[in-house]
Computed example of a mutant assay.
Amino acid sequence: MTTPVIVTGASAGIGAAIARRLSRAGHDLVLTYRTGSDRAAAVVAELERGGGRAVAVPADVASPADLRAVFDTAETTFGPVFGLVNNAGAARVRPLADSDDALIRDLFGANLFGALYGMREAAARLVPGGAIVNLSSTAVHTATPGLGVYLAAKSGVETLTRVAAKEFGARGIRVNAVAPGLIDSPMFREGKTDAELRRFLAQSPLGRLGDNDEIAAAVAYLLHPDSSWVNGQILRVNGGVA
């Protein structure tokens, strides 16, 4: 399997884990990053050492022109694109009353508009039978205080996922989303006391946090032919957190 897949925001974290998983599955990869060119280059080098093919492209997913350029690069480098993973995003903890216009623009741009522009471009450029996977968040349903703007954007991503699944179906293009729960990472642990970490762990029926590879596995499944009858779904990968 050498069908090309675009993964946005793939220089670190969940995006990099998705890239590794898809490369092992045989996909050629076009990885985007907004910052961190050194990290993106390191991910590409790692994939190539493992026998994969990948390129990294700087892009602001809130820019339709940048996303068009990403698809152009994918087609020129590897051929017609099979899949798109809208992983790029940003989150800030800020009460609604303190969310200024700049923060709202940034979070809607990175999360909602990035997915919207990506799906719009993919509608015309994915091969028939291709697949799109968007990244949402389990917190859309837990309505976590301080994340209102971020979650409003991710709620929009989930709605667009269901709409696009119906609109793109005539070309056999499936559209689904993965909504991660709490993921163990240095960023998550930073600034939290042991008591706070225990409180988060207590929310999980499995008694632990998830990891990036578990999210990557879900994304890989939704791009695989084994999920050929899965369309318009939000897969909540959260260990059972309500």
Rank of each mutant, 00 (worst) to 15 (best):
P145W: 11
A143L: 10
T159F: 10
T159W: 09
L116N: 03
A153R: 11
R105E: 15
A115M: 11
V140D: 00
V149C: 13
L112S: 07
R125G: 00
E121K: 01
G148R: 06
S99I: 03
S155E: 09
I132A: 14
T144L: 09
S136D: 02
S136F: 01
V157I: 14
A152E: 10
E158T: 05
G114R: 10
G148D: 11
L126W: 07
S99L: 08
G118E: 04
R120W: 02
L116I: 13
V140I: 08
T142W: 05
N134S: 12
D106R: 09
E158F: 02
T138W: 00
G156W: 01
I104N: 00
L112I: 10
L151F: 11
A115F: 06
L116P: 02
I104P: 00
A123T: 02
S155Y: 05
A143S: 04
G146V: 03
L116H: 12
L147P: 03
D106K: 08
N111T: 13
A102I: 06
V127R: 12
A110C: 11
L151E: 15
G148H: 05
L112F: 15
A110R: 08
D98W: 00
S137V: 02
L135S: 04
G146P: 03
E158M: 06
L116G: 02
A115N: 06
I132S: 13
N134M: 04
A102P: 03
G156T: 06
G118V: 06
L160K: 08
N134T: 06
S137N: 07
T144E: 11
Y150A: 09
A152M: 15
A143E: 10
S137K: 02
A115E: 07
T144R: 05
V149S: 04
A152V: 13
T142E: 11
P128N: 05
L107Q: 14
G114T: 11
G156I: 03
S99W: 02
G118P: 07
L107I: 09
N134G: 09
Y117L: 13
S137C: 04
S155K: 11
A102N: 01
V140Y: 00
F108T: 10
D106E: 15
L160S: 08
V157H: 07
L147F: 14
N134I: 05
I104Q: 01
N111G: 14
A152W: 07
V149R: 07
I104R: 11
A110Q: 11
S155C: 12
V140L: 00
G118Y: 05
D101S: 09
A131T: 09
M119Q: 07
H141A: 11
V140K: 04
T144I: 00
T159Q: 13
A152D: 12
E121M: 08
E158H: 06
S137E: 02
Y150P: 06
S155V: 12
T142L: 13
A102S: 12
K154G: 10
M119D: 00
V140W: 00
E158S: 07
A152Q: 06
T159D: 03
D106L: 12
L103F: 04
S99E: 02
A124L: 15
A152Y: 10
A115L: 08
S137M: 03
A122N: 04
Y150S: 09
L103H: 00
A139T: 11
T138H: 05
P145S: 12
P145G: 10
S155L: 08
A124Q: 15
V140T: 13
